[in-house]
């Protein structure tokens, strides 16, 4: 754990006169869950967009495996193994889990079959099944449309899809928002399994109990700047809430 897989050094971004990111820092190591927290408007989503290639930065530096990179498109981030699961999941509700899993990246048949656009359906199904099994995802059926499934199941499918494409860093934007107790438990378990595969997980959440439960470290953003970086086991919910709201301060580690 010497080099962070992804690191942001003093990045800033203005929207008109609004300073969305102000000299912010962020780092994450392989096989680690880092929670990114902050009040509404603290710059969480701006930071995630910058780190996933969806937004250009005005100043600062982004390092991938210690090497400086300049993201110009999300595809470039994807190519490096970085994926984001947005809150709306980006699943097509009428398609089944396998079809969603490989949407846009279908495994095509060889030779003449590929020419006519035929896919390797069996292979995609088998690989999806393995991926869901590995994450302990509770997918009710591989052939029902995902629109008919519960929020937890859809979240699991979206995470499994991101993980199957990204082998380095996965951003999860509010994955437990509005989930029931049992579904939340399953999603958090899925996050741990992703981490155990050696993938870095950035967990963006408003839910302090979930942050405390699943993360290894917490990075707090306030007013576009890094307010603190803490080891989860050595902090408390009260301290985190204090840092988010500015009621207490703590030196940046």
């Amino acid at each position: 754990m010497t080099v962070p897989v992804l690191e942001a050094k003093g990045i800033s971004r203005m929207f008109g006169h609004v300073r969305a990111l102000d000299n912010a820092h962020f780092d994450i190591y392989p096989g680690e869950v880092v929670a990114l927290i902050g009040d509404n408007g603290a710059g969480k989503s701006t930071l995630v967009k910058a780190l996933s290639g969806n937004l250009a930065i005005d100043s600062g530096e982004i390092l991938f495996d210690g090497e400086p990179v300049q993201f110009t498109s999300p595809n470039q981030a994807s190519a490096l193994g970085i994926e984001t699961v947005h809150q709306d999941l980006a699943l097509a509700p009428h398609l089944d889990p396998v079809q969603n899993m490989y949407l846009g990246r279908e495994i095509m048949q060889d030779g003449i079959g590929k020419l006519f656009g035929f896919m390797k359906t069996a292979e995609m199904r088998e690989k999806s099944r393995i991926a869901f099994d590995e994450l302990g995802a509770t997918v009710r059926s591989l052939t029902l449309p995902v629109g008919s499934m519960s929020g937890g199941q859809r979240q699991a499918i979206a995470i499994a899809r991101a993980v199957s494409w990204a082998n380095r860093v996965v951003f999860l934007d509010e994955p437990t928002a509005a989930l029931g107790v049992r579904q939340t438990k399953n999603v958090l378990e899925t996050i741990r399994r992703v981490r155990d595969k050696g993938i870095a997980v950035v967990f963006i959440s408003h839910s302090m109990p979930h942050v405390m439960e699943v993360s290894d470290r917490v990075q707090v953003l306030r007013l576009g700047a890094s307010a603190a970086t803490l080891t989860t086991s050595k902090t408390s919910m009260e301290e985190l809430v204090g840092l988010m709201t500015g009621a207490s301060t703590k030196g940046i580690s």
């Binding site: 509770t138 519960s150 049992r182």
Partner: peptide
Amino acid sequence: IDESGPETTLIDL
């Protein structure tokens, strides 16, 4: 998000 849907434990594929 549907909260009431029963969460079938593990895979019944």
